[in-house]
Computed example of a mutant assay.
Amino acid sequence: MKLRITIDGKAYEAEVEILESAESAPDYPPYPPAPSAFVPPSAPESMSAPQSPEAGSNEKECRSPVTGMVMRIDVEPGQTVEPNDVVMMLESMKMEMQITASQASVVKSVQVTPGSSVKVNQLLVEFE
């Protein structure tokens, strides 16, 4: 069988052979079903900055859990925040993550600006 194809105004002719369906389709074993006991892993509760051993555990500080870039800051000095309120949005490896407050507090100072690059454990926000 001959076919004519036109690409960008130029005509091409091609000769095509139709194969029998048994010849062209290989036999594959059936795909096994998914296990019925599959349970997806749970998502992390919060991306509040974890503290490294050398940083100590200071509830009056919010530190970066990753190396990344500050995309958005949702708080300002003097603002009251509740537990799990979004403090800012970071981007790391093309993924956005919300940084949340670990407890109710008042924002004392914000140490970064949108577009700032941050490192792991860098101070982002201080609370009173």
Score class of each variant (00 low, 15 high):
32 P>N: 02
4 R>A: 10
82 E>T: 06
70 V>D: 05
54 E>N: 13
107 V>K: 11
35 P>V: 13
59 E>D: 14
8 D>W: 00
96 E>A: 12
92 S>I: 00
122 Q>H: 01
11 A>N: 04
70 V>M: 03
57 S>N: 13
100 T>I: 07
44 P>G: 04
74 D>C: 14
76 E>N: 01
121 N>Y: 13
63 R>P: 06
107 V>C: 10
128 E>K: 14
117 S>Q: 15
120 V>N: 07
18 I>W: 08
80 T>I: 10
71 M>C: 09
36 S>W: 00
126 E>Q: 14
4 R>K: 12
88 M>D: 00
22 A>M: 07
92 S>A: 14
100 T>L: 11
118 V>R: 08
32 P>C: 00
19 L>C: 01
71 M>Y: 08
55 A>C: 11
21 S>H: 02
95 M>C: 08
63 R>S: 00
48 S>V: 11
117 S>I: 12
116 S>E: 02
19 L>T: 04
40 P>C: 04
104 A>T: 12
92 S>C: 03
115 G>K: 06
29 P>S: 05
107 V>E: 06
14 A>D: 00
16 V>F: 09
114 P>G: 08
119 K>T: 15
43 A>W: 07
66 V>T: 07
64 S>W: 10
30 P>K: 05
86 V>G: 07
78 G>Q: 04
39 V>F: 05
44 P>W: 04
3 L>G: 05
42 S>I: 08
48 S>L: 12
29 P>E: 11
60 K>P: 04
49 A>G: 15
64 S>M: 13
75 V>F: 03
24 S>Q: 01
32 P>W: 09
54 E>F: 12
103 Q>L: 11
72 R>L: 11
92 S>F: 06
37 A>H: 15
72 R>E: 14
6 T>G: 03
108 K>T: 05
106 V>P: 05
13 E>I: 01
60 K>A: 13
88 M>F: 05
95 M>V: 13
67 T>K: 15
60 K>Y: 10
72 R>S: 11
102 S>Q: 08
91 E>G: 08
74 D>F: 02
58 N>H: 13
122 Q>D: 15
52 S>G: 15
125 V>E: 11
56 G>I: 03
39 V>P: 06
92 S>E: 03
88 M>A: 06
93 M>N: 08
27 D>C: 04
118 V>G: 05
8 D>T: 08
100 T>D: 01
96 E>S: 09
71 M>R: 11
72 R>M: 12
41 P>W: 12
2 K>P: 01
17 E>R: 09
96 E>Q: 14
105 S>T: 10
29 P>D: 06
102 S>V: 03
25 A>C: 03
1 M>F: 00
22 A>D: 13
13 E>T: 00
74 D>M: 15
95 M>A: 15
14 A>K: 04
76 E>C: 02
94 K>Q: 05
23 E>A: 02
92 S>W: 04
21 S>Q: 10
97 M>H: 14
